[in-house]
Design a protein around this nucleic acid. Structure first.
Lengths: 191, 191
DNA sequence: TTATTTTTATTGAACGGTCAATTAATAAAA
DNA sequence: TTTTATTAATTGACCGTTCAATAAAAATAA
């Protein structure tokens, strides 16, 4: 029962934060959405804080998983770079609402050590993923710069799309722009 | 007296949000920092919400002002582009704490119509500022793409620096990277 | 000038509401 | 019966707002 309930509560948290924001998300708004009582949260997660952190960890592993899935059967470095962009834009599949949830969590990470730790993992992971593929296409020094610029461009386009409450079409357009930028990096630095 | 008090309360709000986050910022934490009673906030701003919005408006106008100041005596399009980058990285002078404050506000803007309006103004302004100078250096179509990419790169580098709690040196490094990217856009698209 | 009224600025206690967390009770399963 | 899963009521802390009271300043009248 435990793993089922945990997952249900995490998904209710995602819904609540997407809808109301982290600020207005309470153990009541979550448990109501999950169709359970509020006490269950303390029982399975030790408290609201624990549930929030578990939710972020779930988001992180979802992102990771969706990238691994796309690159499971071998692909070229260029293809892999495109997959990285796609994974980072469609953060959790068919849940565009989740985008604003990430933003809530990252803002909160400025004042929560554990969330900040998770944020660092996430930021470094995007960089490392890009670096790995860029290194197969260019010299190490240039690969590092390409990875840093690429990561910033992906995050920047993503951030501006989220903040402007972009619709699906605008989101796709931002994703295309990111892909074309990665390709221009390959052209610029590639051997 | 009114304008003095309003400014004092706005600055206390900036301090409190930088220190505790928007989530944990209360009427008490603000009024305590300002050395006044809690009732004064409702008196001058109609409530907490009003003070928060006034604080964001103050940040926005500060950013705008610092750019106008730098470009007051004429400069070349390239110089102006560099000033735009500088203004957006040193958002409110000598207050690096303010960076995380912006993040708090933007996250909150997802669930607050007035804050979202202000965010849109801010995002469009960065784009317009860049577009204006790029248009003097390249064809209109390319200038639009350069402005969109440039804005995303600035925001992306800024975001990653803030989230990683970058120190001054790392912040400067991100700013340099942004400048070099803008210059590469000029080279790539420029006539 | 001095005495008085009026206006403005500010306080802090009280109120109603909501929060997260706890706990005792209950239901179901083993 | 014992254990596990879940509820619902309760607790105490804290939130933003309101408001009657007060202090200071300004205006007016003597």
């Amino acid at each position: 029962m435990e793993p089922v309930r945990r997952q249900q509560l995490i998904e209710a948290t995602l819904q609540s934060v997407a809808e109301l924001g982290l600020q207005a998300t309470t153990i009541n708004s979550i448990s109501k959405k999950a169709g359970m009582s509020s006490g269950i949260i303390s029982h399975y997660f030790g408290g609201k804080q624990g549930l929030i952190e578990a939710t972020v960890r779930y988001l992180l592993s979802s992102l990771q998983r969706s990238l691994l899935q796309r690159t499971s059967q071998g692909c070229t470095p260029e293809q892999r770079l495109m997959f990285i962009v796609e994974a980072n834009f469609a953060v959790v599949q068919q849940q565009r609402d989740t985008t604003r949830t990430w933003l809530s969590f990252w803002a909160h990470s400025m004042h929560d050590p554990e969330l900040h730790r998770l944020q660092r993992v996430n930021a470094r992971r995007l960089y490392s993923n890009l670096l790995y593929s860029f290194k197969q296409l260019m010299a190490p020094g240039e690969a590092r710069e390409a990875a840093e610029l690429g990561a910033a461009m992906i995050d920047g386009l993503w951030l501006r799309a989220v903040l402007n409450k972009a619709d699906d079409a605008q989101f796709d357009s931002a994703q295309d722009l990111a892909k074309r930028y990665i390709q221009s990096l390959i052209q610029q630095f590639g051997v």
